[in-house]
Amino acid sequence: MPVYYFMLGWAVFWGCISELTAKVVKIGNECYERRVNIFLAFVTFSAVIVFAGLRSGVADTAAYIKMYDAYQIGFSGIFDTLKDSDQPGFILLSIFIKTYISQDYNVWFFIIASISGLSIMYGIYRYSKNFGLSAFLFMVSCNFTWMFNGIRQYLVVSILFACTFLIEERKFIKYCIIILILATIHKTAVVMIPVYFLAINKPWHKTTAIIIIGILLCILFADKFLNVFTEVVENSSYAEGYKEIGKTDDGVNIMTIFVSLIPVTISFLFRKQLDKEKNNEIMNIATNMSILAVCIYIISKITRSGILVGRMAIYFTTYNLILLPWLIDKSFEIKERRLIKYTMIVCYIGLFYYQLNVAWNGLEYISKILNLKFL
């Protein structure tokens, strides 16, 4: 636990420094935004990258270490290795690292953590109205724990988050190509192809109604929906682990659904006011993503499938990191804004403590290199 508190403190401190030294820059014709120093942005995320990269035991870390140790050195007979694999892209990346960079699994972890962490950092740097607050949310919402557990899926999630500008600029072909490449790392990436067409529409309009109807249909036919999803997972390399966890799986907890509802609720209540904002394309995208996250969490609870369905929400909840600061800034007056912001900070710190200490019964951290062991 002390490791996670240190990472939170580090992100908050450097996030605040980043905000205090931010400058207004011109990003287009008569369009200006506050941008933090890119080096300070990197420093803000450096602690979580370092601890994620140098770990030896957290959640599914042991399984990944075993996997990396089993990978071959060199590419001879690679086609036989990839023939029946559901993650050829991830295997190729791993074998490349093991062959040409290092056989040490910590180097492998560090490279993956760096790609994931810097991708999230870039998305926040480019789109957040308050980099420091977004970095804080990244930690206290426990989004960062995906860099310690479920790293293959989060690698895909973070890269797609960094590529949000392709949605904003309506470059579907390029976005689709990236998705198909990333699907070789984690096949769930393909869900982002239809999501693209939902994300580019204005929230709370006809398309939103279609989404909600689609969600209700999924709930109505929950068994068939879950069976299809389960079949995909059972044919993956994580089949045994999923089956074991599934025995006690009860879907996502109510608190997670409640927290995910906050930005959606604010967006809905102030939709007319927010609709008048100019140059808010990225916020429309983030709002739609947030709505999708809530719908998936509800399906997860109804189908009692947190490990199968609930994990899909990470593709969309990541956008709350940039959505919440924007909503607070645009939906409330200055006095209200401060009250809302401070209330949110206190509540999220409470969530951070609850998630790590109660829900996860204290998340372990082991690092042989750093000689740390917290169980």
Rank of each mutant, 00 (worst) to 15 (best):
T208Y: 07
I210H: 09
I211G: 12
I212E: 02
C218P: 00
C218H: 04
A222S: 15
D223E: 15
D223H: 10
D223G: 03
L226D: 03
N227M: 11
V228N: 02
F229A: 13
F229L: 14
V232A: 12
N235Y: 04
Y238L: 00
Y242S: 04
K243H: 11
K243F: 08
I245M: 09
I245A: 15
G246A: 14
T248S: 14
D249G: 07
D250S: 15
D250G: 12
N253S: 07
N253R: 02
M255R: 08
M255T: 13
T256A: 15
T256Q: 13
V259P: 00
I262C: 09
I262N: 02
T265M: 13
T265N: 04
L269I: 15
F270A: 09
K272V: 08
Q273E: 15
Q273T: 14
K276P: 06
K276E: 15
K278N: 14
K278S: 13
N279K: 12
E281A: 11
N284C: 12
I285Y: 00
A293D: 09
V294I: 08
C295Q: 04
C295L: 13
I296A: 06
I296C: 04
Y297N: 11
Y297M: 10
I298G: 01
S300N: 08
K301G: 13
T303W: 00
R304I: 00
S305H: 00
G306H: 07
I307G: 00
A313R: 05
I314C: 06
I314H: 02
T317R: 07
T317E: 12
T317D: 09
Y319M: 11
Y319A: 04
I322M: 05
I322Q: 02
W326D: 05
K330A: 11
K330P: 05
K335E: 14
K335M: 08
R337F: 06
R338I: 15
L339T: 14
I340L: 11
I340W: 10
M344G: 08
I345G: 01
I345M: 12
V346C: 12
V346I: 14
V346N: 01
V346Q: 05
G350I: 07
G350T: 03
